[in-house]
Write a protein that binds this DNA or RNA. Structure first.
Lengths: 151, 151
DNA sequence: GCCGAATGGTTGCACATGAAACCATATACG
DNA sequence: CGTATATGGTTTCATGTGCAACCATTCGGC
């Protein structure tokens, strides 16, 4: 049985966590040129923009829940984006602890330019899979992720 | 056609790079307890140990090629492991620039203890998939990764 | 209404990392 | 041989990150 292999033949190349990490790194690198090199956005900032584009307005907490990023990471990303005028921040009328976040005009323009190119790049990355396989892949990933939700 | 969606409905939740990164993070976190919290090993160090366990001896360059890690990252991981007496380093007789790396007794012992537990944890993570699906997943990941090999 | 706990968000700190500069050794070519 | 170049590996620097401590506001129990 596969369960009884000795530890002598342990091979990282068939170890899912490692392979997952390596692929994620490679893919991320392939995309970085678009938002990092060309627009000076890091991954955290890109994600904040993407969520604000998709579903405004949001508070930092909502972004944190959506992205599962550390709250400090979200806070710093928002700060940077606000500093560059890509995001507006307004204290919520309901609760002064929150801030409602939205894309500014400039932020919307940036995303309008960026999204089609990011989509195109994703399509290239996914080219080796049929559309059925793509669905299957995302579905399997969702199944793997579910038990790992904490909180 | 799916190709003609406007940028207005872009949703990170269905964006593969993001989903991949999130899953990889979660999985990595789930494993970290084993080698990080209990043995003070970071991911880079764990990978070096795993490769040296699997295929000794190796030079830093070979580990770098195998893991696709930055050479500085490998260098620092090896230094730390040597400092803890888990790895031996010996200048290669063929070329003084290289160093042949091997696990020390302590390193082998550590891996003998760690590998079964890591395997067990991996099995838990993979539980939501049938063994056929697991193969399929790794195979699809390999197909996605191949065009991203650089150099 | 008032005090303690909870909650959204920020900041300080320690650490890991990638890129580039750098060092030492080996190879190629005159 | 001797110099230029390539290569393995290390170090320096700037940056991003998680964690924990912290601040401000709000909520819950009395």
């Amino acid at each position: 049985m596969a369960e009884h292999r000795s530890s002598a033949d342990f091979d990282l190349e068939h170890f899912l966590p490692y392979r997952l990490d390596r692929l994620a790194d490679r893919v991320s690198e392939a995309l970085a040129r678009l938002y990092e090199h060309e627009h000076g956005l890091n991954v955290a900032q890109w994600r904040v923009l993407a969520w604000l584009h998709h579903q405004p307005p949001m508070t930092a907490k909502q972004i944190r829940d959506a992205t599962r990023m550390d709250k400090a990471r979200v806070s710093r990303a928002v700060q940077a984006l606000e500093g560059r005028g890509l995001v507006w921040r307004r204290p919520s009328p309901h609760d002064q602890r929150w801030h409602d976040l939205r894309l500014s005009e400039a932020g919307q323009q940036l995303m309008a330019e960026l999204i089609p190119r990011v989509r195109e790049r994703e399509a290239q990355l996914l080219a080796p899979l049929t559309s059925q396989e793509r669905e299957q892949l995302l579905e399997m990933m969702a199944r793997l992720e579910r038990p790992l939700q904490e909180g």
